[in-house]
């Protein structure tokens, strides 16, 4: 099955991006396709390479980047949501790209299932 993923929360305030990451990873391992992961609201903070969690904490930014490298997952950060929160190209972690909300709508059109993670 072809999934589109929407991440609406940041990596530290909320479990949603962990759940999205684990779902995405599990789906790929089961042979499904992830059409795109779209980051909206505080979800754009998942792309901030300046983030430095403590050593005993998981580093979700790095985990997303590794997933993108390994599986060529398209990680898209909403430009409007990102600019508000100071997320720009020069602080974007590897594997992420900034684009418009149209990428989310396209994901909804193309994917068999569009799944939201967040409140």
């Amino acid at each position: 099955m072809k999934f589109g993923i929407l991440v609406n929360e940041g990596p530290f305030q909320h479990q949603a991006s962990d759940s999205a990451y684990l779902f995405t990873k599990a789906a790929l391992e089961k042979g499904h396709e992830i059409y795109r992961v779209f980051f909206y609201y505080d979800g754009v903070n998942n792309a901030n390479k300046l983030s430095e969690p403590q050593a005993d904490d998981r580093d979700l930014v790095k985990l997303w980047s590794a997933l993108a490298e390994e599986h060529k997952v398209d990680l898209v950060v909403c430009v409007a949501a990102a600019l508000r929160r100071g997320i720009k190209d020069d602080i974007l972690a590897p594997g992420f790209r900034i684009s418009g909300l149209g990428q989310l709508i396209e994901s909804g059109i193309v994917a068999d299932r569009q799944i939201t993670f967040g409140d």
């Binding site: 409007a80 909300l101 149209g102 989310l104 709508i105 909804g108 059109i109």
Partner: peptide
């Protein structure tokens, strides 16, 4: 919270895609 405002932005984009 910011949910309502950013949801509205999302609605406007879907309309542009003629969905």
């Amino acid at each position: 919270t910011v949910y309502a405002l950013e949801m509205l932005e999302k609605v406007l984009i879907a309309a542009a895609f003629e969905q």
